[in-house]
Design a protein around this nucleic acid. Sequence first.
RNA 1: AGGCACGUAGCUCAGGGGGAGAGCGCUACCCUGACACGGUAGAAGUCGCGAGUUCAAAUCUCGCCGUGCCUACCA
Length: 897
Amino acid sequence: MNSDTLEKGYEPREVEKRWYAYWEKEGLFAAEDVADKKPFSIVIPPPNVTGVLHMGHAHNNTLQDILCRYRRMQGYNVLWMPGTDHAGIATQNVVEKGLAEEGKNRHSLGREQFVERVWQWREEYGGLIIKQLKRLGASCDWNRERFTMDEGLSRAVKSVFVRLYKEDMIYQGDYIINWCPRCQTALSDLEVDHEDHNGNLYYVRYPFENREGGIVVATTRPETMLGDTAVAVNPGDERYRAMEGKMVILPLMNRAIPIIYEEYVDTSFGTGALKITPAHDPHDFEIGQRHNLDIVKVIGSDGRMNEQAGHFQGKDRFECREEILEALNKEGLLEKVEPYQHSVGHCYRCRTTVEPYLSRQWFVRVKPLAKKAISAVEKGETRIIPHVWTKTYFEWMNNIKDWCVSRQIWWGHRIPAWTCETCGKLIVAMEAPEVCPACEGTTLVQETDVLDTWFSSALWPFSTMGWPDDTQTLKTFYPTSVLVTGFDILFFWVARMMMMGLHFMNEVPFKDVYIHALVRDAEGKKMSKSKGNVIDPLYVIDEYGTDAFRFTLAAFAAQGRDIKLSEDRIQGYRHFINKLWNASRFSFMHLRDFDPDSSQPDAQSLSLPGRWILSRLNSTVETVTRALDEYKFNEAASALYRFLWHEFCDWYLEIVKPVLYAQLSLEVSGDKANKGRTPDTQRAVLCSVLNEILRLLHPFVPFVTEEIWHKLPGTNGSIMKAAFPVSNEQRHDPGAEATMNLLMGITSGIRNIRGEMNVPPARLVEATVQSTDNDVRQTIEEHQDIIINLARLESLNVTLPGKRPALSATSVFGDSTIFVSLRDIIDFEAEKARLNNEIAKITKQLGGIGKKLNNADFLTKAPDEVVNGVREKQGELAEKKSKLETHLSTVTHLASN
RNA sequence: AGGCACGUAGCUCAGGGGGAGAGCGCUACCCUGACACGGUAGAAGUCGCGAGUUCAAAUCUCGCCGUGCCUACCA
């Protein structure tokens, strides 16, 4: 293969591998801590180390990469900070699964060995997703890759924890939290997924002390009744008047518990009587606090009934439910069972039903932090794009509850707190204390809990840049320019980064938050393994190439709408990549030995098609730049698609083909004398437009553009180092565009006749254009070669309106009437049908316009320019219609002869 | 229960007060010297329904219907 030619079809695989290695080797992704250039920075949403690249990652990182490559080409000092998240529960679960296969568990290993084992796992498999991001073309500065558990980040986590504790922003407390009995840990509210569940509402009678009558309560979870310490009714409820303080017998346990009055109770639900289980329901817990009720825990951390549960001890909580119902039934205390749908919380990691569980946990007081985070967005220090999400953000921030940050797992940042065994003092510090500052005791036991994974993620924008040290990286790149993420982690992550960033850096962590849509399957359903509707991005990359995939994602990334992805759609954009490839291939045929340096296109000698394509290119540059600046990836993609395919390929290349082939034959024949004299502007334009197209497309389709770039005359080095095109007002040429519109209109008119009248493409025909406008006639005559070529004409006559050429079909464009001679192949019926169809369309349009112009209010109240526009339109249409009608009658006349 | 989106051509969607658009699909003709992953042409929509504002509504407002999502919670 010659260095300046391309294979017939684009083969992504080898090309992608080669150029990615080249980019890395050349250090083209590297950011500079000190530079004269303006900074642009993004921190990657760190994927879980356990993660495998899925569509969400692919979409998210493609958008980030487009922005980074775009800004880099614009001359910014770009930092795209990469890394992975230790993903506490998720990773622990994965490693535990591995252990289970060996017949072991983490307890048999012990904490230290288990954690060691997780690190091993990470060494071995943790790099997978990074490799996959590279296949996607991600231009992260990999030398800076971070991990939320690495040394520096662990130091940041400890510093933050200690400082928050000293500021009284962290406290320990006994509360009902969400407990996953399988993972054996607390979960934050966000980590619980609620699902509707078809359960039952059980009506249970709690008899009075004399064993007579009693109060009927309704519950969905009868097993918790073993821990009941009261029954609450609404003080205004007539049915339970004067019952406060009376006692009822808790069935099965034979314990007397009081009836209490509580406003919270809804009289319309169930029987209006609510059993109170302070240890196993968050509301009951609060009510218990208010009424000083006993707290009786009957379910243990493993989801089994404990010693307080009488003879149900040791039973699984759901098993116990069945047995309790049976026992109640036997005693005649189960009054009624009705089906009842309610939502049940599940662990977001393992789907186990979450248990509300009373325990001692660490909490962060977030209200003061949230206040700052709200005001930063209100003041516009951080913009949320699209704006609709701002409301959701405020809503959540305004109703935020304290954040339970402790987790009872082993993989994660261990809370830097120690308790003195001697005096019980709690010490929170960066390092393990040697002696208790209170009693000088030396037996200090570290807290066993670790921190919520999102605690370290919340610090990501500054911890990755070296905080708590005052680094040059922070000075240059904080706050980051934009955070690109899905709305699914707006609360988990974005909100918390805002709070931590503002608190510890006194500055927002990012100027913009761009929230993109979710990728769904072709039917709009969430992709999930269990539904079997996932499309694997790596499969897509193998099958269609990274560039086609990336362009698809960008093209569908309309703000605020989810992406329904299917293979068909990706295939469509592979065609686009192929089009680019072949347009380049064609260009290279003609650019052999072309030296762009010695043949700069100069405005004077530019031909019409040259001026036109440069003018269109300039509009495209403007559109793409504006769209990317506003995160409207789909608009940028569609502008590029349209320009490359429908303007550059369909019109420009087709128009200049004859000129290029003529030039080519000059080159081949070695006619030096003529060669030197022919201005080479056409090739110069071709070369420079293609050059610019590649640069415009590079952020979207980095591989194929790099490959072509190196074969394009006049380029030097990587396209990554080339400048992103800028608009140049001098190329804007409305005159050329108007002229081209005329020529394209006439051409389409002729093609329409050819198509409709079934003229075989190989057959050349004669055409006549009649116009009263001298300029129009002159323009068409001047450029008649273009029309003759594109419309496949034998000849083109341009005249004043006059006699209608015999046996011809007609079309009207502007004030021009086009006749195509059809001689032996004219089909009068077909022509009549075609004209009738055309006339019908125009008549319909005229109807609407006429209505407007007959409306006096329209004439007086609408702006003049609108009225004039409509009048002009009416004139045009009426003229066109009358011309077509004339021709129709001629044809009808001819047909009947 | 509350909130937020969305209902435009067969499908996926763009547009967002004055001429209904694109891609894919479909139909017809064509392997014309970059590309059949191609070319040319064509058919196809009361812009969910109903009202209001306006000279003018697919576009703004309200209501309804449908779809999706989010948040909260119901013992």
